[in-house]
Amino acid sequence: MPILTPEELLNYLPLLSLEPIQAEGVIYRAQGIAESGYGANRNLEITQYIDERDLLRVGDFRLPNFPLLSDPAPSIQIRDFGLVGYGGLIPQVSQWIDLESDSYNVDYEVGEIRFLNTGLINNINVYTTGISLGVRRPRNYPMHKYPPPKLRITYTAGYDFSPNSTSPDVKKMKSALAAMIEVLVTKGAQGIKSETSDQDKIEYFSASEQQDIKYLDYLAIFRKYAPRTNF
């Protein structure tokens, strides 16, 4: 779904003289820039993501993309882990298996998953680190570290850009995109020599430096929605 519809664009810019097909084209152009490396560096609409990484510790993991949606709820799978029993080590499990829901909590407001040191997670922690947290250690627990298990989180995140959305973030992005489009179609913005989002290159020869600054200011708004790196 585009951030703006042609009808919404005319509401923001009533003096803009564009045919519907032209409006769709300039919206697509501006949104492509807004979602490129210059801006959000991601798809902003509701999208399903699959994130795979090593489970290095028990604790909080903040998902890169936000806001996190509860429908469908995130699903978590794990593989390449071994178990510790009172009879010793159980060989590694190489296929993906679903992690029990009581092994983690989901904070939808923050977009964070907290893995709890209970059940399977605790057993894996013993196998991986040789340390049992809060439970009695097995007799034959490992005395050295093992490779960490693999984790796969499937989740849905993004924004609903339907015209009737009441989200403050959505309204802010719609307004910023309309402002970008206004700059793109004015004479001052004709000074934008080229735009190549995939190569991270924008060249300017505009006579209006103020227009260029405004254009970059609007892109800065979208950068606030870039994926988080402290996962």
Rank of each mutant, 00 (worst) to 15 (best):
P149Q: 05
N43I: 14
E19Y: 08
S103D: 15
I221G: 03
G82V: 04
P148Q: 12
P142N: 05
V185A: 12
V58M: 14
K145T: 10
L219K: 04
W96K: 09
I192P: 03
S17L: 12
Q48T: 07
Y12A: 05
G134E: 06
Q77A: 06
G59N: 14
Y146F: 08
E203L: 13
D102R: 15
V185M: 11
P147E: 02
Y12W: 09
G158A: 02
P138G: 03
L63D: 02
I192A: 03
R136I: 09
T186W: 00
L133S: 14
L69G: 09
G188P: 07
L184C: 06
R79L: 00
D212A: 12
I113T: 10
S206F: 06
Y146D: 02
E19I: 08
P149G: 01
E209G: 15
A23Q: 01
A179W: 10
V170A: 00
L18H: 04
L18C: 08
S132T: 05
I213P: 02
I46D: 01
L216W: 15
D160E: 01
S162L: 10
R136M: 12
N41Y: 13
V84T: 00
D71Y: 12
I21H: 12
S75P: 03
I192S: 01
Q199L: 07
K172R: 13
K172Q: 11
Y49C: 02
K150Q: 13
P67R: 05
S162M: 12
N43S: 15
S206R: 04
N125P: 02
D198C: 00
K214G: 06
S194M: 03
E24N: 09
D102Y: 15
S17V: 11
L120F: 02
G134T: 01
S175N: 13
L68S: 07
R137T: 12
I21N: 06
L116C: 05
K150C: 08
L99P: 09
L56C: 08
E7M: 13
V26R: 04
G82P: 00
E112P: 08
R62P: 01
L10R: 11
P72C: 04
Q31I: 08
M143W: 10
F115I: 14
R29F: 13
G37D: 14
R139W: 14
Y146T: 01
S36M: 13
Y218P: 03
S167P: 04
F115N: 11
K145E: 09
I213Q: 07
G130P: 05
F222A: 00
I97Q: 08
Q48A: 05
L18Y: 10
A207L: 11
L69R: 13
D217W: 10
L177N: 02
E7P: 02
N125S: 04
